[in-house]
């Protein structure tokens, strides 16, 4: 490490700015979005897997994939985005599995939520915390 004392201070100053999001502001919106998909029904937490990066180097392109064997449809919600709805996959008769991937935008560090509507009418929900760095330094 060859940083000068001053640089070391700058670097050591430490800023995890992304953590300080106005989460409460979006809490109501996410509850509404969940209720809109489940119709207020209870959800279980088994039978659905959401894969998302622990750390996303940029919130513009966050790869996610979701799997819920036996699901009719799966919705993805971003709890910390101004509008929580991201996308909904609906599987047809020729779907090879109830599994799909996409790339999504996250406005900051937050929980990504996936809810599956099963063929028997029940719902399964899971979530995954994604830390979005303010990266992309260097212009």
């Amino acid at each position: 490490m060859n940083f000068t004392r001053r640089e070391a201070l700058i670097i050591g100053a430490g800023a995890v700015t992304a953590a300080a999001l106005p989460m409460q502001a979006f809490a109501a919106a996410i509850d509404d979005a969940i209720a809109a998909f489940t119709g207020g029904a209870e959800t279980t937490d088994s039978g659905i897997t959401l894969t998302a990066p622990e750390i996303a180097e940029n919130g513009n392109t966050v790869p996610i994939s979701v799997s819920a064997p036996g699901a009719e449809s799966i919705t993805i919600l971003a709890s910390g985005n101004p509008t929580p709805n991201v996308l909904t996959f609906t599987f047809g008769p020729l779907a090879g599995s109830q599994e799909a991937s996409s790339r999504i935008r996250l406005a900051g560090t937050q929980d990504v939520i996936a809810i599956a509507k099963m063929k028997d009418g029940t719902f399964a929900m899971t979530s995954s915390a994604v830390k979005v760095t303010i990266g992309g330094c260097g212009g």
């Binding site: 709805n85 991201v86 996308l87 996959f89 609906t90 599995s97 799909a100 996409s102 999504i104 935008r105």
Partner: peptide, 17 residues
């Protein structure tokens, strides 16, 4: 498969299924 997309899907929407 059919997908309903909102504004939070990335530029150049990508799907794998």
């Amino acid at each position: 498969i059919s997908v309903e997309l909102h504004g939070a899907v990335s530029t150049n929407p990508y799907f794998q299924f």
